[in-house]
Amino acid sequence: MTEHPRPFDDNQALDPRSTRLRITILRTHAVAGQGHLGSSLSLVEILSALFAEGRFATNVTAEGDRLVLSKGHAALGLYCALAEAGIISHATLATFGQNGSTLEPHPNETVLPEGSVCTGSLGQGLSIGLGFAYASRLSGRSDERTVVILGDGELNEGQPWEAAIAARRLKLGTLLAIVDANGMQQDGAMSDIMPIDDLQGAWAALGWQVHTVDGHDFRGLLSLLAEIRDVCPDTPKLIVAQTVKGRGVPFLENAVDSHYPSPLDNAELDLIERLLIAEMRDVQ
């Protein structure tokens, strides 16, 4: 298996919000005893930057930016980000994994309006986001941004590419797709299963404005999100965020076992928490 490089270097600065979110994900997973952990951990800085920069609607009909988690199996990460942002309560978050909880394994807006949309069947989220962006235009709300988070493995499906073509044809400049490019699928590395050569070039050829960023650089993500919000109003945007699956837990990073692992025990949680806090202090 080809190793996906760890993007961090010593010159980058971590943000306390990202460290706190990563710890919340780990501890919520441990209490629930279940959840897609690796994919949630690779999204941490992406989610932290989006909630720090965005103005997200709290339900599908409210005004504001839209967030579609197309890779719905990373719902644990989204729920923790919603709790850290004060959009849902930590008491609600504590019900994740329990029978009758509104926090289902994949987002379901019929029981959790703050989840915006049901996702879970991979490949459909960009089409949903396209609809949101087009609806905002028809409603005269041209300042609303629609953000769709996809997995790189998800792009092995055909529907995202169809949506990409349509988005450019409709000139949906308020549509932003972010690919969590952690180089992994459920069963192994992208490079071993079905690699996508020159993802950036392919989407640029479809007429999208394309950017590549270290997906664990909170400040770089925040800066890029602000930079591209109001530019090229007729052109949809793609951010390829290079990440590490299982980021923050050394024995889960880049590992197939990180997809749906057993929860960490208390000693492991305490150790990982100390390591994460120390890493944040070292690079600030």
Rank of each mutant, 00 (worst) to 15 (best):
D15K: 04
W208Q: 09
L126A: 11
A49L: 00
G188C: 07
H106P: 07
S121V: 15
V111T: 13
R141S: 05
D230H: 14
A205I: 08
E45Y: 00
I149E: 05
R55K: 14
S191D: 12
Q98S: 15
Q284G: 09
K71H: 10
R137W: 10
H259Q: 00
I128Q: 11
D265Q: 03
T28Q: 04
A204E: 15
D230F: 09
V210P: 08
G246L: 04
T212Y: 00
W208M: 09
A163L: 09
D65H: 05
I23N: 00
L269E: 01
E162N: 11
M280W: 10
N59D: 14
L82V: 05
F51H: 03
R137V: 11
Q209I: 03
D265G: 02
A204D: 14
A164S: 11
F56G: 03
S223C: 10
S39F: 03
G120V: 11
D10V: 13
R274E: 15
G220K: 03
A133V: 09
L103H: 10
W208K: 09
G183M: 03
E3C: 03
G38E: 00
Q242A: 04
L82Q: 06
A167V: 02
E157K: 13
V148Q: 04
I128E: 09
S42P: 00
E279K: 10
A85S: 12
P160V: 12
S223W: 07
V256R: 12
G201V: 06
N11Q: 13
S40I: 02
E227D: 14
F56R: 05
V117W: 11
V31S: 09
G158I: 07
H106A: 06
S136L: 08
L82G: 04
I149P: 05
T174H: 14
R27A: 00
Q12S: 07
I272D: 03
G158M: 11
R55W: 06
G131S: 13
